[in-house]
Amino acid sequence: MYRRLRTPSLWQEMNQLQREINSLFSSYGSPRLQSAPSYPSLNIWADEESVMVTAELPGVKAEDLDISVEGGSLTLSGIREPVELPDNGQVHRHERSHGKFTRNINLPFEVEVDQVEASLKNGVLHLRLPRAEADKPKKIAIQS
C-alpha cells in the first residue's frame, strides 16, 4: 500500500472511477455492435462561458487540419501522413495509424464563431470555444 501526500479532490477521483467503470462495461458485449474507437480522442473542459476541447494529434501538421464550427457543432478533420519508407527499408513495427479522419461533436451551446481560439503545439490541439452572447442565459428580474 502507499499513501498519497497530495490528495486530489474527492470528486476528481470519483469522476475518474466512474469513467473507468463505464469504459469497462462498454467493452463487453458483441464486438460487432461496438464502434471502433473514434479518432482523435477528445477531452472536453467546460466553464460557464466557454468550452475547451483538447485532442492529441501527434504528427498532424497545422495545414493538414481542418476545424469548422457551425452553431453548436464542431467538426475536426484532417490527415495523418504515414512515415516515409526508404528504398531498402524493412518495416519491423507499424503501430502508428495513418490516414484521413473526421470527427463531429455537438457542443452544449451555440458558439461565438469569430472568437474561437485554436492552437496546435507538440501534437496537442487546444480549442477554446466561447458561448455566443445571444445564447447566454438571461437573468429575469422580478417586478414587485
Partner: peptide, 26 residues
C-alpha cells in the same frame, strides 16, 4: 503519481540504420 503509457511506434530498418518513430504528444 500519474499514469504511464507505452507510446506507439514505427520501426524501420535499413542497411545503415534503425529509424524509430514514436507518438508522444504534449
Amino acid at each position: 503519481d500519474i499514469p504511464c503509457f507505452v507510446p506507439r511506434a514505427d520501426i524501420i530498418e535499413t542497411e545503415e540504420d534503425y529509424q524509430l518513430t514514436l507518438d508522444m504528444p504534449g
